[in-house]
Design a binder for these strands. Structure first.
Lengths: 245, 245
DNA sequence: CCAAAAGTGTTTAGCCTACACCCATGC
DNA sequence: GCATGGGTGTAGGCTAAACACTTTTGG
């Protein structure tokens, strides 16, 4: 393996500015063309797929670190971000960066906090960094194999997302500002992986009482133009608070 | 404040053997005399109450660290242990150990993984360590104020315990090997803080299908001797698996 | 007119609660 | 006999699922 001088230089910066042994990995969900997507990186050194992640600055909270890392990667600020588990097995990152010196930042043992994030696909401009040849959205129906324990992290995040769907409102961060009810229903169906009854779905959303019907319609379709809705941010967040902690 | 040479010596050992910046804090629940109890320490330096916690050895997984710390403190091995959240605010431990040098292990910034534990009260022998003047069970109805963010950690753990009670079997690790149905019901009532209907409780437990009726009875009471039960470990753990991750 | 969207009504099944009744048993 | 424990029956209420019917409307 050819050693990358850029990595070695960056390594020094990391040791000075970040907390050692702790990392953050995020499972970033987006919704586009009726598919649930996850943001993935392909490392240019190891040629393996990974979740986007990063490290914690010495004067930065864990939550802020997750937010910053996500912003650096996507430019998105209007995100839902929640910590959902710590991954602390000893051999998590075994075998990576084998050719490098032992004092390379990335060769440390890391304990990683897993975050799951919901972002508006249309608001995101993905950008690879110097270690990754690509950063791209992948449909969850067509995921490549993930390296290290990232497969596990991803699975846990998806499970949690599906669980939360049944008792929390989901959507504010996954959809553009205005959307139609059929679009919202498609989102739910995609996440759950099964069709939902339209009438019941309509009533359920109305019961949440978090939607505001807009004046305008989504024109241009072949048939009746559906109403546009937006979320009522206040009621939406109330609804998020009330349920669990 | 008088500086403690023992702490300074121990600090050196910590730097050599533990992962910096990462800690583990456990909310340890026990059940005794119809009260739900939590294990607390009172620090002899700061005279403040804290949850029992510890650090991660360099060649130890996070989960193992939590298990070890708990064992060192209680001697209990038959425990239920689950990570439930990371606490990573910047000023979590502000003000502690103010009189000491900045390179004191304990003065670092720590990001802490919160574990909640269920243990059999009768199996536990609590032991204070060199930093705590007492280590004792406190009823959750009579908790002292906890220092740092330990109040928050405790509250989150209790909330989770109450939630899990409704869809997971709870009890294997909180009760002695053999117990009666009224005792199990009391445990549930204590955790939830409200009385439950006996007949419905009976049916619910039977529906879980995780109890084994013993031959013998709990003799000695004033009235009819109740049956003793034990958990079927296989079915108990199946039941734990199936539901969420 | 057709197909999608919007809104509402109804039936059914399942579940949890509350309550009540039975029997057994130790003192 | 009386208080506790063990076990079962049942009526009411709530919710979710399934299905159906109506009206509106863009092209």
């Amino acid at each position: 393996m050819k050693l990358d001088q850029g990595i070695i230089k960056k390594s020094k910066w990391m040791w000075e500015n970040c907390l050692p042994h702790i990392s953050v990995d995020s499972v970033v969900f987006g919704f586009h063309e009726n598919q649930l997507k996850v943001l993935l990186l392909k490392m240019n050194v190891a040629k393996k797929w990974l979740l986007p992640g990063g490290y914690i600055l010495k004067n930065e909270s864990l939550q802020d670190a997750a937010k910053r890392v996500l912003f650096e990667r996507t430019g998105a600020e209007r995100v839902y971000l929640q910590e959902f588990g710590v991954f602390g097995a000893i051999n998590r990152s075994e075998g990576f960066f084998d050719g490098y010196e032992d004092d390379l930042w990335y060769k440390q043992r890391f304990i990683s906090a897993g975050f799951y994030a919901l972002v508006d696909y249309t608001e995101v401009n993905v950008s690879a960094d110097e270690y990754s040849e690509t950063c791209e959205w992948r449909s969850i129906d067509d995921l490549p194999e993930l390296a290290m324990d990232h497969q596990l992290i991803y699975t846990n995040a998806l499970t949690l997302l599906r669980q939360q769907l049944s008792y929390k409102p989901i959507g504010l961060n996954l959809l553009p500002e205005k959307f139609t009810l059929p679009e919202l229903q498609k989102l739910y169906e995609t996440i759950l992986g099964k069709p939902l009854n339209r009438g019941n779905f309509y009533r359920r959303m109305m019961r949440f009482d978090i939607l505001i019907k807009q004046e305008d319609l989504r024109k241009g379709g072949a048939h009746k133009a559906p109403y546009l809705y937006s979320f009522d941010p206040l009621k939406y967040h109330e609804s998020l608070q009330g349920l669990d902690w």
